[in-house]
Simulated assay, not measured.
Amino acid sequence: MAEVSKVGSEYVGYEYKRKEILKEHASLYLDSYPCFGWEEDPNAEIAQERTQPGGYVTLNFRRDRKICNKVELTRLQRNFDGCILEIDRLEKSKATLATIAAMVIGVAGTACMAGSVFAVTAEPPLITLCIILAIPGFAGWIAPWFVYRVLVRKRAAKIQPLIEDEMEELYEVCRKGKDLLI
């Protein structure tokens, strides 16, 4: 008669977490969430099937419900998520002011060009006014590209140290989480 082995057959209850994140952060989450006791759920959809429109991915995690230091790990995980949001906000802020400035210049150039068109179609045509308004009009159409690039570069130089500080904080939070698991 065959004996039934009970070794290794303990039931482990898991809690599950589904996270929709930007595709560019997927590796960071997959590498960092194990520091908070989470592991990728092997029963979830495979990676190719979980891509969402808009550059988002859905990651599925699980962790043991009886994990030690669960409250502190959850607090560190929230801190990690907050750091990621702050990094995203800083990245978006690189182009915000530059976009606004470029659009204002482009609209001003368009207004000058409209004035130039109205000047040339007036009765009698005002050619001198047309030329005077056309020059800033063309400049207002060409300059936004250069203004945008310069402003983004300047803002990126100011923002990059802040992003690096946030990344250091991320790594510190993960290290603290990993220390709690051991």
Rank of each mutant, 00 (worst) to 15 (best):
V4C: 12
S5K: 11
S5F: 13
V7N: 08
V7L: 13
S9A: 14
Y11V: 03
Y14T: 03
Y16E: 12
R18T: 04
R18Y: 15
K19V: 06
E20D: 14
I21M: 10
L22C: 06
K23P: 00
E24P: 04
E24G: 00
H25I: 02
L28R: 00
D31K: 13
D31E: 14
Y33S: 03
F36P: 08
F36M: 10
F36H: 05
W38F: 10
W38H: 02
E40A: 04
P42L: 03
P42H: 02
A47E: 15
R50A: 04
T51P: 04
Q52P: 02
G54V: 09
G55W: 10
T58C: 07
L59C: 07
R65G: 12
K70P: 01
V71A: 14
E72Y: 02
L73M: 09
L73F: 06
T74C: 05
T74Y: 13
Q77L: 14
R78L: 15
G82S: 10
C83E: 04
I84K: 02
I84G: 02
I84V: 00
L85K: 08
D88C: 01
D88M: 07
R89F: 10
K92G: 05
S93H: 03
A95L: 08
T96D: 09
T96S: 10
T96A: 12
T99S: 11
M103L: 14
I105C: 06
G109N: 14
C112Y: 11
C112A: 11
S116F: 09
A119R: 02
A122T: 04
E123P: 01
L126P: 03
L126Q: 14
I127C: 05
I127V: 11
L129E: 15
C130Y: 15
C130I: 07
C130L: 15
C130P: 12
I132S: 10
L133M: 11
L133V: 01
A134M: 11
I135C: 08
P136G: 08
P136D: 12
G137I: 00
F138A: 11
G140P: 11
W141K: 05
W145K: 06
Y148I: 03
V152E: 15
K154D: 15
K154Q: 15
R155K: 14
I159T: 10
I163T: 06
M167F: 04
M167V: 09
E169S: 09
V173C: 08
C174D: 05
K176R: 13
G177E: 12
G177F: 12
K178A: 00
I182R: 05
